[in-house]
Amino acid sequence: MFFHIVLERNMQLHPRYFGRNLRDNLVSKLMKDVEGTCSGKHGFVVAITGIENVGKGLIRDGTGFVTFPVKYQCVVFRPFKGEILEAVVTMVNKMGFFAEAGPVQIFVSNHLIPDDMEFQSGDMPNYTTSDGSVKIQKDSEVRLKIIGTRVDATEIFCIGTIKDDFLGVINDPTTT
């Protein structure tokens, strides 16, 4: 799920950036530092959308670096148990398949793939129904339900299922 929230961060800035563009420098450094990272509490920071407030800078003794407390608005993405996500399949193997929804890696085990879909090995491993009408392979887009999440300091792992109504392939790269 995406959230638009306000976060705060203390930014250390080198004295060489002080000047007319201090604020711009601060913002671009913030973007570089924060976007794409992951925190256990909020999930992935997808994008910074605005700066709420830059607090008073505090000069550090000895180094000349200045610490600014910055409040910024950002879009974060955090998967939840029970959430329905759309994801792109990245790898298919005997144990199931891996899919990615943006930065989140999701594993769908073969226990959670409908029983009528069977694994086919070969140069393009895939899960296919017996009549061949539905196929999950690399680059397929699937709709899945998250049944478990673990959020690390830097990564988020999810377990997903497509064994439920209205879940499964939503776009097959081979047919388009």
């Binding site: 148990k81 144990m95 199931g96 792992f157 377990i159």
Partner: peptide, 25 residues
């Protein structure tokens, strides 16, 4: 089995002992 210390079937946090398929993930 487990993926990221979660059961691959029920999603619960578990410690599974077994073979690590690090070549896959």
């Amino acid at each position: 089995g487990s993926f990221g210390k979660m059961c691959i079937v029920c999603g619960a946090q578990v410690e599974v002992s077994g073979v690590s398929f690090a070549n896959i993930h």
